[in-house]
Every structure is written in structure tokens, then in C-alpha cells.
Design a protein around this nucleic acid. Structure first.
Length: 559
RNA sequence: UGCCCGAUGGUGUAAUGGUAGCACAACAGACUCUGGAUCUGUUUGUCUAGGUUCAAAUCCUAGUCGGGCAACCA
């Protein structure tokens, strides 16, 4: 109980956890903690959403409450069922469960309409006939108050009639709107008689053409939260100035079981990528990437296809914390979280990317196979047999005729350990007519020889099959692609963000299932592509490289 | 130049008036059948100026810098 060594390490707290904890201590209005994740189904979820998802679902779980998944679909123009399905898939993949609590804003349209009518009756809202151009004039600017709409004080009965006829489809799109009557002199623009409903003849993927008026976010969102008994409505910083309006809408409601409260936190910015739906859509539409699930995309489906385990994303979200500071998180932290999970879970396999043939002279001494451990980090992963023989393939980079200092690999007259299979001493080199290296000859010694060598290299049998591998790198060449004032973010696309190559792989690698994650020893973590892998013919995507201090050191020497 | 929010090592965060800590990154060493992993160590920080206080990253004032707000988007 009091041993300090094995105390569980809990993630550092943050202001939202502290706030909820305080609310719970005070009784939380007699309610369990209820949060919600409310994406608009107009695009695919990305790792920025993962931060919000882990917060919303994480707080609910931590405090024994619940979290709703809600489609915030009040603007049918850009929304579709395709996105709804992808969102459910991605949230589930991340490891969260909304239970019975899956909702659509569209299912509240009738109730919202009733609330709007109540507002009109009590003189809190009115139908405005000003055009959008005229309204720009009336609205004023942040530094100067606006002026009141000439329709502001029309009798409620008149507004009620007009509002009903708006719904009935008597007016063209954009000709009328319903406004809240708040304060045209407010320094907060959002309080200057904001639009509550607009006329928009747009087919809704759920309600079809039943409606031609749709509620605005600022009206709909607090109502949805209130209808569902949400206690803690967590959203990103750009909604901070909307909070007074959120509260105004809540104040108009009677007999609320719980009063929802909005709290804002900073959205995630990740280096070397972009996060806005608009820009991601642009990359897809201009074919800079193969689709939303291109393994270079920061979308959850892209990260999944890249081979990133959901646990790594959750660990990352715990690691980055929650604040109100607009930060730029180093993608190296994400990569660390990915390696951390994969190191413990990914089976080790051998694959040679750039082969150099090796012929072993003392062929008669060789075993016909070797036993290889599947994961040194996980004894329960067992071991496998790899065929062995006098003809092998090693990595070209693992041999140098005239090695630089501190080169621990093979060179003439020197020895290395070959993974799981004893030692090789280089006895000769073969070259073609141009003097290019075509192969080497070696003498083999068994593991029992216990040679003192500094390096271990990987290998495959010479009859290993080649498979396609896709080597992914960061999508952009600069930390903040969208921070440049004149240049477009697409100007910073990394031309080498994907390289197609082949690798000669040990037999076990031909048996993987799509989605299986492995480590190519000394190279990196790879996943069998979920789309393009066929039975016996896998295609591998590189998730992330292994750390390589030698590459770093030798690159440094070259400079 | 109106309103709102923010600022802690290179990066992300913790410290809620009382020893500035953790993680990533970087660097060094130990260990190792992955130049991986693991372990140990090192470097680097409270935006500025005043004030309150025995004591300030924390409270107050002013400034600087950064972000957000003027869709019938969310």
C-alpha cells in the first residue's frame, strides 16, 4: 500500500479534469458526468479530433458518467451518411464506446422549432427581412456598435406567422431569417441579434426535404446539449466568444434537469502536417494523396492504414495534455508513442531492402534452418524457423570494402554476427566488368564460436521472395505548412513522402494478414496494407522507422 | 485601433503563495544476438517592467508578443 515503487503513474492533471472533479464533489447538479463528441459529418476524423474524443470519452469514463456521440448535422449542404459511418468506425477503432447514446441533431429539428416559436412569443426572437448585404451595415464592426433592424420590434404574432410560412416554403432561400433579440451594442458580435434559422432548400441525408429551414450552430448546439442532459460541453478555443450566446440560449429554457456548461480547450496542431478539413479535402481532390485514407494523411483512417495502433494515439493524447495555449506539438512525440507500443507488440521479422548476395564457403557446416525469437520484448510471442543455407542476401549498406571508423558491420577480413544464425567473416568480393560490387564470399561460424564482434546484421535466404513496400515519410517539408503568408501550403509538399520499393522477405512475412503489424529488424515497423495485400502477396506500408543512431552519426560525419 | 483568451527549457506539459518537476528531442556513457529496446547521466526554462508579500511561475498594475471574434458554416 505504501510502496512508492509501484505506484501507478497517472497522467498529469489538467484544468478540465480539475473542474469536473470539483463539480462532482459539489454534486454535479445531481447528475452523472455527461459529455458528448459532436462532429459535423462533413469529412473524415483526424488526429485533432482524437484529442477531443479522448477528452470527451475519457472524462466520462474517469468520472463514471457517459459520453454521447452526436452528428452535428444542421447544415445539410456538406453532410452525408458516408461521413457518419466513417466517424462511427473511427471512434470505435480508437477504442471508445457510446453505448446507446448515438444521436443526430436532425432528430431534434421539431423540438428546436418549438423552442424557437416560444422565443418569438416571448419577444426574444423575430423574423428579419434585411438582406445579408444590408445586415453587414446594421451589424456594425467590433469597435463600433451596430444598429437595430427595422423588423426588430414587429409584433410576435407577425413573426410567428412569418416563421411558420418560412417553414412552409413560402419564401426563397436567404430572403428571411429568424434572429434572436439580444443586444446590438454588445462588444461581442455574436450577441448582436444572431441568426437562429435560415431558409435553405437543401436535401438533408436524414430528413430529406422535410425542412427548408435549418437552425444555426449557435442555436442548435446548446439545445442539443440540454435535450441530452449533457453536463460538460467541451469544445475548442474558437468557440470561446460564442459562450455568452450558448448561455443565453440555455437561459431561455425552462425546467432544465441539468444546466450544460461549455468549456474550451486548445485544438491540436501537429508539426509537418495540416489539420483543417478544407486543406485535407484539397489534398484529396487535387490527388496529392490517394484518398482520405492515404497513409500519409493525419486522418484516423490514414493513420490506421499506416499501421498506427489506436493505443499509440490514445497514449499520445494523454501525453500532450489539455490547455488553452495554442501550441504546435512535435510529430516526434507521436512517433515515440507509436514505437513505444509497436516495440512491445510487433513480431520481429527479417527483410532485406537492397540485397547483396553472400556465398558461404563452408557449406557443409551449415544447419538447414535456424530458430528465431519472435519478439525479445515478449517471450510469449514464441519463435519460428527460418531456412538457412550457403546462399544469403544481406543489406548492401551492411558491407563496405573500405569502412570508415566505428563501422561495426562487414568488411573484408572482418566478422559480424548474423541475426539468429552465427557469424560471417568476409573472405572475398566479386565485381563486374565495371568494378561494381556484385557479391561477397564469407566463412560461416556457429553461434557457439562466441566471436567478439560489435555488429549484428540481418539477412534472408537467397531464394527469398520480393514484395512491394511503400516507404512513407512526412507529407510536408516544413513544420507549419500553412503558416506561410504568401505561399500555399501545397508548395511545401514533400516530394519524397512516398517511395515504392521492394524487399526480399523471409517466408513468415508472406503469411501475414492485411492489417498485421511487424518490425523489419533494424529497419522499421511495417503493416500489411489493408487494401492492396493479397493472400501470399502482401504489400507493406512503413509505419515508422526504427531510431537509427548510426545513420545520424554517419550523416553528421559526412557534413 | 473594441471585446475575449493565452504566454514555464528546442517541443509539449506539471507545480493552485513555500525546493521549478515530468515526457519528447538533443548529447554522453553502460548494457545488448536489432547501431533497436533498456538503464544512467548531462545541457537548456518561468515574456518584460513595476507592485503586494517573510516568500511570486502563481496575486495586482502596465506593457510586449501570440491566438480568436465582424458566414444566413461548424
Amino acid at each position: 500500500m505504501n510502496s512508492s515503487e509501484d505506484k501507478p503513474v497517472s497522467p498529469p492533471s489538467h484544468f478540465i479534469r480539475e473542474m469536473i472533479a470539483a463539480d462532482v464533489r459539489a454534486g454535479n447538479q445531481g447528475s452523472p458526468v455527461v459529455t458528448r463528441f459532436p462532429p459535423e459529418p462533413n469529412g473524415y476524423l483526424h488526429i485533432g479530433h482524437a484529442k477531443a474524443i479522448c477528452l470527451d470519452f475519457g472524462m466520462a469514463r474517469e468520472f463514471g458518467g457517459r459520453c454521447h456521440l452526436r452528428m452535428d448535422d444542421t447544415n445539410p449542404a456538406k453532410e452525408s451518411m458516408e461521413y457518419v459511418e466513417s466517424i462511427k468506425t473511427d471512434v470505435r477503432w480508437l477504442g471508445w464506446d457510446w453505448g446507446e447514446h448515438f444521436y443526430f441533431s436532425a432528430h431534434y429539428f421539431e423540438r428546436m422549432y418549438d423552442v424557437a416559436c416560444g422565443l418569438i412569443r416571448r419577444g426574444k426572437a423575430y423574423v428579419c427581412e434585411l438582406t445579408q448585404e444590408q445586415w453587414k451595415e446594421y451589424r456594425g464592426v467590433p469597435t463600433r456598435p451596430g444598429k437595430e433592424s427595422p423588423f426588430r420590434n414587429r409584433p410576435p404574432a407577425e413573426s410567428l406567422d412569418l416563421f411558420a410560412r418560412m417553414r412552409a416554403g413560402e419564401f426563397p432561400d436567404g430572403s428571411l431569417c429568424l434572429r434572436a433579440k439580444i443586444d446590438m451594442a454588445s462588444p461581442n458580435i455574436h450577441l448582436r441579434d444572431p441568426v437562429l434559422y435560415r431558409i435553405m432548400r437543401e436535401h438533408h441525408y436524414l430528413t430529406g426535404d422535410a425542412w427548408c429551414i435549418y437552425p444555426m450552430y449557435d442555436f442548435a448546439h446548446p439545445l442539443e446539449d440540454a435535450f441530452e442532459g449533457v453536463t460538460h460541453s467541451l469544445c475548442t478555443l474558437e468557440f470561446e466568444v460564442h459562450r455568452p450566446l450558448y448561455d443565453w440560449v440555455i437561459d431561455q429554457l425552462e425546467d432544465l434537469p441539468v444546466r450544460p456548461r461549455q468549456t474550451e480547450f486548445a485544438r491540436l496542431n501537429l508539426s509537418y502536417t495540416v489539420m483543417s478539413k478544407r486543406k485535407l479535402l484539397e489534398l484529396v481532390q487535387t490527388k496529392r494523396v490517394s484518398g482520405w485514407d492515404d497513409p500519409r494523411m493525419p486522418t484516423l483512417c490514414g493513420l490506421r492504414r499506416r499501421g498506427v495502433p489506436p493505443e499509440a494515439i490514445r497514449a499520445f493524447c494523454d501525453e500532450i495534455g489539455i490547455t488553452k495555449y495554442n501550441s504546435l506539438t512535435d510529430v516526434a512525440l507521436l512517433e515515440h508513442c507509436i514505437r513505444d507500443v509497436l516495440n512491445k507488440t510487433a513480431p520481429r521479422r527479417m527483410a532485406v531492402m537492397d540485397p547483396l548476395p553472400v556465398t558461404i564457403e563452408n557449406a557443409n557446416d551449415l544447419p538447414s534452418f535456424v530458430e528465431a525469437v519472435n519478439n525479445p520484448e515478449d517471450p510469449s510471442a514464441g519463435s519460428r524457423r527460418i531456412p538457412f543455407g550457403p546462399a544469403l542476401l544481406i543489406e548492401r549498406g551492411d558491407f563496405m570494402e573500405t569502412p570508415p571508423p566505428k563501422y561495426f558491420r562487414l568488411s573484408p577480413g572482418k566478422s559480424v554476427r548474423i541475426r539468429y544464425a552465427g557469424f560471417l567473416a568476409c573472405t572475398g568480393v566479386q565485381k563486374d566488368a565495371n568494378g561494381a560490387l556484385t557479391g561477397i564470399t564469407c566463412r560461416w561460424a556457429p553461434s557457439e564460436a562466441n566471436l567478439k564482434v560489435k555488429g549484428t546484421i540481418h539477412w534472408v535466404p537467397a531464394d527469398a521472395r520480393p514484395v512491394e513496400v511503400r516507404l512513407y515519410d512526412r507529407l510536408f517539408t516544413v513544420e507549419e505548412p500553412d503558416a506561410h503568408e504568401e505561399k500555399d501550403f501545397k508548395d511545401f509538399l514533400n516530394p519524397d513522402s512516398m517511395k515504392i520499393a521492394s524487399a526480399f522477405v523471409e517466408p513468415a512475412l508472406l503469411e501475414v494478414q492485411p492489417g498485421d503489424r511487424v518490425q523489419f529488424e533494424r529497419v522499421g515497423y511495417f503493416v500489411a496494407d489493408s487494401e492492396d495485400s493479397k493472400t501470399g502477396v502482401p504489400v507493406f506500408n512503413r509505419t515508422v522507422t526504427l531510431k537509427d543512431t548510426w545513420a545520424k552519426a554517419s550523416a553528421g560525419d559526412a557534413r
